[in-house]
Design a protein around this nucleic acid. Sequence first.
DNA 1: ACAGGTGGGAAGACCGGTCTGTCTTCCCCC
DNA 2: GGGGGAAGACAGACCGGTCTTCCCACCTGT
Lengths: 205, 205
Amino acid sequence: MNPEAKVPAFPEAAAVAESGPAHSVDRILAVAYELFSTRGVRDVGVNELIERSGVAKATFYRHFPSKDSLVFAFLEQRDKQWTMDGILSEARRRGSTPQEQLLAIFDVFGDWFRREDFEACSFVRVMLEMGPAHPLGKASIDYLAKIRGHVRAVAEEAGLVRPEEFARSLLILMKGSVIQAVEGDTLAADRARQMAVWLIGHHSG
Amino acid sequence: MNPEAKVPAFPEAAAVAESGPAHSVDRILAVAYELFSTRGVRDVGVNELIERSGVAKATFYRHFPSKDSLVFAFLEQRDKQWTMDGILSEARRRGSTPQEQLLAIFDVFGDWFRREDFEACSFVRVMLEMGPAHPLGKASIDYLAKIRGHVRAVAEEAGLVRPEEFARSLLILMKGSVIQAVEGDTLAADRARQMAVWLIGHHSG
DNA sequence: ACAGGTGGGAAGACCGGTCTGTCTTCCCCC
DNA sequence: GGGGGAAGACAGACCGGTCTTCCCACCTGT
């Protein structure tokens, strides 16, 4: 029927457009992670995601029934690979005691704030972009609560009194320093760390 | 020409749709303030602003050459009427000494967090929505810096040492408590206030 | 080993809706 | 009669999402 058929295009080149993972779903997730984490959720459209990951639109919607479902997957990935592996595990590695591990969170933050691709915490950002009542906002709140649970567990290991209240106060310092770092205060992590020292002191026995 | 002319509609009713100010520009600003402060900037379109303020589209664009220019006007109004009159003046009124005035910020925050129409700080929200490089993001950063300047001035009145560093630390507590309040922690202001007490203590002489 | 079927993926047209912003038309009031 | 404003059509871009068309790689039966 078609006299010139479909041009073979790039049987390989297009497939590895991002030189990333071979499978479509992995490439979509990798592109989504990069775009969502640096530019937010509302600013990135499905068409751009498709183009950048070198995937057909039908393929995208076979793996993810809607854009929101991709955002859910992104938040989960962000929790695993950024919160857990990037921040909390690293902080545990750097400190030899639970107290030191709590303070090391802000050392890791300091390194993070000085990265040039630093662009704020995705959970806070999505929560504010979508609102706390939106399913994606609620999911973000859940992931933030998960972080708080982790902090609380370390606080209990450290023998701090009222660990839940401690964790909530420490998260105020964490969130506040992130926001301030977005504004350009690269020393925000040090200021928060100092306040964390006082906070730990008042929860010790 | 038109056999039925244009229906007189509501020569008065529509004009006072929001039962607000009589002049178009004031009605637009009042509607914009309510919608932007509760739902953010990206979620509110020009058509909705026009409909809610009972104004013609041409009238809107005569007063504001673009939506962004209206957002600029909103940020300025937010600074005057929320930051200055709502928070900082009220905090100064509640405290009899500069130290008390600094702590009173968090008392005012506590009342604010418990309002049911509480929806986060517009400056932080716009900065994250648009990004710190966007003109609106930069303007938001400027207004946040203005708040910091005010805090610094009160810190100087209180005779605190290193007032700039103090102000930056206090703003971490302010921003962090606001974010945490969005998540539903209504006691965030009290936690931040306690940390502010320690912060003041370490900057006193 | 080879023909034929089959299903996944790429490309992209298309749909209805929404976005910002322009322009026209008409009316009312000064 | 002239200017401001209300109403709203319109333009052009983009949104999320559906669907069609074609191609190719792999699997199966003989």
